[in-house]
Amino acid sequence: MNLIDLGVVINTLWIGLIYSLMAIPLTISYKVTRVLNFAHTSLVTVGAYVAVILSLVYPDFFSNVFVALIAAFFAGAIVAILNHKFVYRKLMDKEASPVILMIASLGSWIFLKYLIYSVISIVSKVIKKDLYFAVPAFRYTLNLNFLGISNPSLTYSLILGISLIVLTFVVFYRTSFGKAMRAVSDNPQLAQISGISDESVMTLTWFLCGGLAAISGVFWAMFSYASPEFADSLILQVFAACVIGGISSIALTILGGFVIAGAENILMSILYNLIGLDLSFRPFLSFLTLLIVILVRPPAGAAGGLPYRLKFKRERKWT
């Protein structure tokens, strides 16, 4: 009996890449600004829709994927920066706790989400096209046959996604801006004392994170379609990937994205073929992965809790 086929594996790779791309900006923005940004999924949706709407309205210019990606990047970045300036910065000036910032991000999320809905419903009426399930009009100038995958959007996003992840690593660990970001994440006050303006570092961080989130949204739209709900329905998977990384390690977050994608696709396929598990149990597998991670390797440190945990004894690093 064939438990998994090649299609499932390729799907896992691709979906894992998307999850990682969505989870990385969440992790970075939490690390640097201490805001667990629930409005993140709205940024993803903004990116997807800006690219889709532009490609439908100005098809000659924005049908090129790269142009659409750049437009989406800036749209997501601007929304993230505005959100920071008007909500998080003001709350940080009042020395709000991370929990308050988290609740504020919920407020921004719900506001942005329905703002997107309103904009979509207006634009749908103006351009007389249903945008609730919008298929973008991107064209691919190259047709690469990469690893035997002939789907051009897959090839594109695999190459682009991997290079984006590499770029993030380079920015975060090799450039002086990345060092400043890590310094602010370690100790914002000491960073100020050393002559680093924490405000400009945070603004730039939101620029990058908002842009990356928007690009991941375009990737998703390229593969299937854009709807106002698609990013919100991925919230479980994206946050689970972040939790696997402890909301602190980028490498582990990427691993988390692939683990969640594997649980959803490969494990689901195996269970379906073995015991005929209903496909409606698919989200349970990601949630189960999340629970197992929390129970077996509970995240400690800034985002974690107090070290009262399971009954069995274990060595614990205090960081």
Partner: peptide, 9 residues
């Protein structure tokens, strides 16, 4: 057993 952020998520 984890912090408020993880609990929320």
């Amino acid at each position: 057993r984890v912090g408020p952020a993880f609990l929320g998520i």
